[in-house]
Design a protein around this nucleic acid. Structure first.
Length: 468
RNA sequence: GGCGUGGUAGCCAAGCGGUUAGGCAGUGGUCUGCAAAACCAUUAAGACCGGUUCGACUCCGGUCCACGCCUCCA
């Protein structure tokens, strides 16, 4: 079991991770609102959570992860109506695309994906508990609100002093029925705009507020107190702050021990967001010819608490980097030299450094440096002929270990195996022409292959075909 | 207005009070019929002004700039 350290937003410092149950890590991650395709900025958060769960597993923990799906809120209702579809049908299509995208990015599935609409009774029960304990109240508009004045610790996560805050907020005149403008909705009363979307409750027809969703579902699957809660930095306030207020008021115990927040993906210096219109979906990138693993590599390239500047140059850079590693794996598979005995130690050190880097608050930059250090050493020894089959296999095995977290190397999959037979045949003809030193013929075939959409490159013992 | 984060070489991006971060690009080689790929080597930095220190990119103060949250948001 490797000791893991996290930067805990709640304490604003790096701490050793001590789970409630030794050897197990329970984590809750805020998932998508399924009203549209997620953009790659959204996926930065899900990638960070994937990195977190894979790192925990690498360090010996058994992970239980819950990711909620918000399938009822203002936007899902609004857009399903605009599309002339039922809420369920409407959100189902985006749930489907979300899971397709996760797969494309090689993000490991969570253990649970609870949907909000599947847990309305649990939410109603939690709201009732909050009312019974004096934290919730029914207002004139039929909504149930949470009275933040009743929870003195409100603001402890975001480090917000509400006295100070309220005076600074632009108060909208039509924020009417609440006791305090900062009170938030636990239950929203039905209005005409909601159409046929409503559930019965002790307070009449309506639907749950957003924050109560995560409190109710995390409690159901992970218990009243659990280890880790993650999300994008923009969810810290008010969403996570409100979750704390709800859960700790209802249960009378700590909600979460470690809060981890990732920074934004930015484009041209600004946050990628739907409202700003400066976003790309994964599908758009795939249409441009980039792959999920290239995007995955880009998303892993910066530390999760630092803003990540997305550029197409970064995707190109990822492509080159991954290709060079693939070449190394090919060379390693063919290695058959005289071992000088040094590789065993090199590999052991690389493994240890890799794990230590990730265990230190998920330092992917540091872990990448370890990867490239091993790449360089392996190449040097391949050139020198000092890698035996066993040495090479040890290096490959090390990359397989790296890949349990990175998930992009494809250590054992060859690059080009789905090339049509006639293309291979042309390449064979070119090989023969070259053997006969018939350069004109060889070049003509190469040009022809290019028009067919393939590049052929010479290799020591033949050729390599790549699809354009 | 309140709170918070950051400014590192052409681009991306780390650690660290003194010893090469790393990747991409570039440059020079190796290989090669040509091309490409690959491999090896290598250039280049710390927004600005002060302070602490034998020594600061790293600590402290200030200035400027950028971004985020406070409203749905990963």
């Amino acid at each position: 079991m490797q000791t893991v350290y996290f930067f805990n937003t709640l304490k604003r410092k790096r701490e050793e991770f001590k789970p409630l149950t030794p050897g197990k890590a329970a984590m809750y991650t805020c998932g998508p609102t399924v009203y549209n395709f997620a953009h790659i900025g959204n996926f930065r958060a899900y990638m960070f959570e994937d990195l977190l769960r894979r790192t925990l597993k690498l360090c010996g923990y058994e992970v239980t992860q819950v990711m909620n799906l918000t399938d009822v809120d203002d936007k899902t209702i609004r857009d399903s109506q605009a599309a002339g579809m039922s809420l369920n049908d409407f959100t189902a299509q985006y749930k489907k695309s979300f899971f397709e995208d996760l797969k494309e990015l090689n993000i490991e599935p969570a253990e649970y994906y609870p949907a909000a609409t599947g847990h309305i009774p649990e939410m109603i029960e939690l709201v009732q508990t909050l009312i019974d304990k004096g934290f919730g109240y029914v207002a004139n508009d039929g909504c149930v609100y949470y009275s933040i004045n009743k929870f003195p610790e409100y603001g402890k996560l975001a480090k917000i002093d509400m006295e100070n805050q309220i005076s600074g907020v632009r108060i909208q005149n039509d924020e009417y029925e609440k006791d305090s403008v900062a009170d938030f909705a636990l239950w929203k009363a039905w209005t005409e705009a909601d159409g046929d979307v409503w559930w019965d409750s002790p307070w009449g027809k309506g639907r749950p507020g957003w924050h109560i969703e995560c409190s109710a579902m995390s409690m159901k699957y992970l218990g009243k107190t659990f280890d880790i809660h993650t999300g994008g930095i923009d969810n810290m306030f008010p969403h996570h702050e409100d979750e704390i207020a709800q859960s700790e008021a209802a249960n009378g115990c700590a909600y979460v021990n470690y809060w981890l927040h990732c920074a934004h993906l930015i484009v041209n210096g600004e946050k990628m967001s739907k409202s700003a219109g400066n976003f790309f979906t994964l599908r758009q990138l795939l249409e441009k010819g980039y792959t999920g693993r290239e995007m995955r590599y880009v998303l892993l390239s910066a530390h999760y608490r630092k803003k990540l500047n997305f550029t197409f140059e970064a995707l190109e850079s990822a492509r080159t980097t991954l290709k060079r590693l693939s070449t190394l794996f090919e060379r390693l598979r063919d290695a058959d030299g005289e071992s000088d005995g040094s590789m065993t130690g090199v590999v052991a050190e690389a493994k240890e450094k890799f794990i230590t880097a990730l265990a230190d608050d998920l330092n992917t930059s540091e872990s990448a440096a370890v990867i490239f250090g091993l790449q360089k050493e392996a190449n040097k020894q391949l050139d020198a002929g000092t890698l035996s089959k066993e040495d090479a296999e040890a290096v490959l095995d090390c990359f397989r270990l790296f890949d349990t977290v990175y998930g992009v190397f494809e250590v054992d999959t060859g690059a080009s195996d789905d090339v049509p037979a006639e293309i291979v045949e042309l390449a064979e003809q070119r090989k023969a022409a070259r053997a006969a030193k018939n350069w004109a013929e060889a070049d003509a075939i190469r040009d022809k292959l290019k028009t067919l959409g393939y590049t052929v490159e010479d290799a020591p013992d033949g050729f390599r075909i790549t699809k354009l």
